[in-house]
Design a protein around this nucleic acid. Sequence first.
DNA 1: CAGTGAATGGAGCGATCGCTACAGAGACGC
DNA 2: GCGTCTCTGTAGCGATCGCTCCATTCACTG
Lengths: 210, 210
Amino acid sequence: MSGARTPGTRPADREVSRVRILRAAAEIAAESGYEGTTISKVTKRSGLPASSVYWFFRDKDHLIAEVIRHGFEQWISSQPRWERDPRDERPLAEGLRAILSRSVRSLPQTPDFLRIGQMLLLEAREVEPEARQYFLATRDEVASSIAAWFTSYFDAGLRARRPELARDLAHIVLAATDGLLFAHQIDDALDPDEFVEVVVAIVEQAVTSD
Amino acid sequence: MSGARTPGTRPADREVSRVRILRAAAEIAAESGYEGTTISKVTKRSGLPASSVYWFFRDKDHLIAEVIRHGFEQWISSQPRWERDPRDERPLAEGLRAILSRSVRSLPQTPDFLRIGQMLLLEAREVEPEARQYFLATRDEVASSIAAWFTSYFDAGLRARRPELARDLAHIVLAATDGLLFAHQIDDALDPDEFVEVVVAIVEQAVTSD
DNA sequence: CAGTGAATGGAGCGATCGCTACAGAGACGC
DNA sequence: GCGTCTCTGTAGCGATCGCTCCATTCACTG
């Protein structure tokens, strides 16, 4: 009576099932938030039973943390790196424009994990989910690499005079990106190219204002 | 055995109980999101039974929609209005600075409904909660009044040449505010006064760039 | 072809979910 | 006092929650 509809219920590769679950969970969490992500929904969308979910992930909290870790890994590999080629002699504004406009182009298919992370950041829970802490740490790493990128453009004098500048600029870039993501979530009212110019203008002003 | 601990279980004023429930729900939703807001938590924090919750509100969805409506009402009355005194002869930048810096000062005690609304916007649910639609409509009204404020500064020529400018600027102000709110949710890395100057600079550039 | 371990299918645990039913308590008009 | 209406207290409905248990299946090893 083997009701197997597939040729045979052969165990898929470890990674295949794991990723199926992660993807399903990511979609659901992006739709319905942390609490709205139920194991039952995950099993239905992934096609794998609850026992498999708990085979791969300790508990629901850990599952969502892994959703963010995995999503970030995928995403970062497709993003322009905030790293400056030493031979690059273009001025800051131009380099910034280059990175941002590439970054912004990937916005329409904003990865789920970013939206999930933003939701988690907005929540001020009594007990912090592991997922939230992980997203915070990740975000901080990104801020650091952006700050380092800015610093590479500053001469010794500027670094000494305004030691916080690079970090401030990194935070502005992040905040602006958050705002753009948000606007984009609602409608496409904000033109991404215009956004890039706005950020470039802010940075130029901040750097030269001294 | 009347277990009444209060002098007498007299029915409170309609509005008092309603607001107790709304406030409790707002706190919980800001902590745990839409799905994380359970009737049981609301009854515990408000001190009123589930039957009272359902006496005042049709269902959970309607309750949260009312949380946003009520929160917005309270908040908007404490905010600087985007209305221009006809006798006001100050330049745009100065007027903008005045409104924004007042607005930004209320940021530390960001009202819960704003965070709840943002969470709802991030969620892309199959069935939209009433609460989300209501927040969207509210946000749109605010955008309109900001756009009208900008328009009041434009002469006929500018209005004709760039009919979308006011609305674009309004969207930029909103997006920037979202970003600031976000940054502030994480830590106080972004200086609100600096933020005001950034927005003013963007607007000035956009208006004069033509 | 028996033995092993990774992964699945399915049943089901106690707790909680959103929500309802209904009996009463208190304020009010008469 | 007596009914009426508003709101509260309590119990509990069926459904679903996160999670566990365990037998079974499959690919692989020797």
